[in-house]
Nucleic acid binder design. Sequence first.
DNA 1: CTGTTAGCGCTTTCAT
DNA 2: ATGAAAGCGCTAACAG
Lengths: 331, 331
Amino acid sequence: MATIKDVAARAGVSQSTVHYALNGKRSISESVRQRVIEVVAELDYTASALGQRMRAGRSHSIGLIAPQLPTWDASTMEMLISTNVTASAADHTLGIFMGQAPEQVVQLLRNQLVDGLILIETTHTDPRIEALRDTDHPFVLLGRTQNLEGLTSVDFDFEQAVFIALEHLVRLGHRRIGFIAPQQLETENWYFVQRGFERARAAYDFEPTCIFEGARLNVEDGFRATEKLLETTPDITAIFTAGHSHVGVMRALYGRKIRIPDDCSVIGITTAQVADWSIPKLTSVDIPLVHMSQTATKLLLRKLNGELVSEQILEPARLVTRESTAAPKRH
Amino acid sequence: MATIKDVAARAGVSQSTVHYALNGKRSISESVRQRVIEVVAELDYTASALGQRMRAGRSHSIGLIAPQLPTWDASTMEMLISTNVTASAADHTLGIFMGQAPEQVVQLLRNQLVDGLILIETTHTDPRIEALRDTDHPFVLLGRTQNLEGLTSVDFDFEQAVFIALEHLVRLGHRRIGFIAPQQLETENWYFVQRGFERARAAYDFEPTCIFEGARLNVEDGFRATEKLLETTPDITAIFTAGHSHVGVMRALYGRKIRIPDDCSVIGITTAQVADWSIPKLTSVDIPLVHMSQTATKLLLRKLNGELVSEQILEPARLVTRESTAAPKRH
DNA sequence: CTGTTAGCGCTTTCAT
DNA sequence: ATGAAAGCGCTAACAG
């Protein structure tokens, strides 16, 4: 591989001349510029990113930190792609780091493997965050934590999401509602889900049957929870759920020949892409995960440029009515 | 951030002494070693990966090249995680690059952004491969292409997979079989799927109804295909499908109150994780994608270490019987 | 057992 | 308008 030195030698000019001829940061006579361009083509020269990054003292890559080997689903994928695209557009590489101990996470920054971090699946008291808090390394939360003082975060308003989902069902006329949620008590989200539920309980008159199933809401969990639900309370007219689990919920309903939404409505909290995927399409409080990931990445990139960003962004919840909810049929 | 220079100065020794004290590649008196360790702790020194990589002339990262913004599903995620874990274990970062033009792909290697590449979703005549063929940059295909001469690849035996899936159905006694496949005629896989189908046709006596739906097999495509299938040939007793689409297939069957496997068997080609996810669990020719990704990554890492690897690995197809297939009921 | 020095490829300051 | 030289942080060859 040809280096800038080779080009300089062959063109009979200095390294800096080659550099400036290619970058236009100072004036170069047209003849010299032409000669340089020529030699660059001849030797098939490309500036080494390694050298550039070395010189700049920045690795030009950012790390996405997941606490453990994730059972990632389609929506996590959306987040990953969005983050990657945003980082790429700003000439940054995205590295994914899973299951690292908090000290290892800090180490990534200290040895300049990455310039900054995006933390996902944050918890109420997150050891990663505590480890990073005192350092002045740039990082952004995609999620929230107990004490956001001085931190930068992007999260979805889960409390409001749960509230308006239940509100939607109540306003359609539903009174007996199945509430399916995971037992991920440690996550920060769970706290807000509970709050949203309590607020809806206080504001509206309905009878929930709560089923707590699984640590994360996947298809199987949704199925099992619905089976339990229908055993306990066969007369429910609507089911609330979240994540990817509505697929399992619908499967269980189909299996018992309960039509959606005619006999039972289903409402969820998930991304538009996942909601559109189910049959019938899921009425959902859509999490704008692509947008949120993009926002988080952009905030981090601003930090990397030396801006002092300290912003807590809470993405508002909006209901999107699709095909899975309707008024309950009167007896 | 403290550098090796700082440590050397503070400890009153030379840089190389610090270096060797920390790496043990040459003998150091115990007293000096202790002193160095001490200062390292004091200054909180960590070797910069940037400097190391610069010096070594290797970026220590590998690129995963997807031809376009993918509509990735759970199985792609498995591949991604497996690749990442394997690369991490060998101290390499994984970068994901999507939708790059062939020249840009080569550029990644030329400017030393990555040391090697893993290409996924390869096609019969793949411009990325043609662009890379003449260069001596290390890369590995996760998939196949028309001319594998001199290339390194890891792929699944789709031809055999289709054959044994159909064989399984025929041996159970099925004769009227729905065959659902995507119209991804350009991919290399498709070619082998066709061959497997033809071979089964030649070997066994059954009447297929073929439905070609969608460019990639997702849930919605599977649903639509099954609806078509049941309109055309309501008396089928089994359905063959692939990818993630069996979820849609099952949904359509549920909707028509057709029981699985009692009234209709469903067989697929997908990963074990995805197969276990459905209800009932899918009988499937499992693609060992995690293992394949690991193999591909390890092959690439060997190439990066200068080994001359040129291996075409074809992972054998094995059927895993789960809950979605049974003998057809006699009339 | 330890120190000196060169050099990876680049950018930028300083000098002409 | 151009060149010379320094230096980012590291490793390793060479020299004691």
